[in-house]
Amino acid sequence: MIIDMHVHPIYYKAICKDEKEEAFRSEAFGVFKQSPYDYDEIFVEMKYAKVDMAALLPLDVTTTEGGVIVSNEQVAKIAADYPERFIGFASVDPRRSDALEILDYAFSTLKLEGLKLNPAKQHFYPNDKMMDPIYKKCLEYNKPIIFHAGLSWEPNSITEYAHPLKFEEVAVKFPQLRICLAHFAWPFVREMVMLMIKYSNVYTDTSVLYLDSPEESMKRLFTVDMGSLWVDRALHKQIMFGSNGPRFRQFKLLRALEQIPMRETSRDNIYYRNALRFIGREEF
């Protein structure tokens, strides 16, 4: 089984009904020259990659950019169309006055399974006290948070907001809150590893392909930026497979991961077990 914990459904045809909305989405997210694709095309790629399920991530940038890249309702619709294939996440702009009501609705009515936030794009520090009620709301519903971390190439995104060290206080104050700092917080891989060693509630994902081929990128990540035994020895319960589609393609990252030597238990954890634990579908 393989679960992709990092997919942006911005070109899913089921939610591409309005040209203005599509144009905003493309500009705000910074992905161009792609066309909407239907479920058949999504599933044919997942089938080839042997990916069983994908977590879909929206983003609310209401106060910084005046809209949403993908809405909670749109993610809920896709997840409802194929509940066996998709794991729907919510998003909220933390500066919205109705942020907590939006989360209540997303978790209780839309049945979304986690929260996606992007400090770089939404312009907030994760350790800002303003965020505490949002973290408490996630704890109330036992929902995890996926944060964008490290480099963000979306327009109008500031990397300092998403530096991994800005998350340590969150891990300390909310030890029961499961948080994923996506993309290995690249290029701050050592800081990411430091957090995972210290805090068992901190996760990351494999969507690292900012330079090089998938094989070169994964080899560097798992054997140069990290010691080649670090995953087996210490980190195998905190790394999840994530592709960052549509920026990177699932099957190419998986092709590269297959070439990284690791214990089969570690590989299973990365491919799906950690994801199930992270979203609360499997006991700790």
Binding site: V31, F32, W153, Y210, L211, P214, E215, R247
Partner: peptide
Amino acid sequence: VDAEYVHAHFLPSYGATGN
């Protein structure tokens, strides 16, 4: 597939890595 192609880098015009 494993040759050292220059195209293997982030493409701002796509918002994706060319591979």
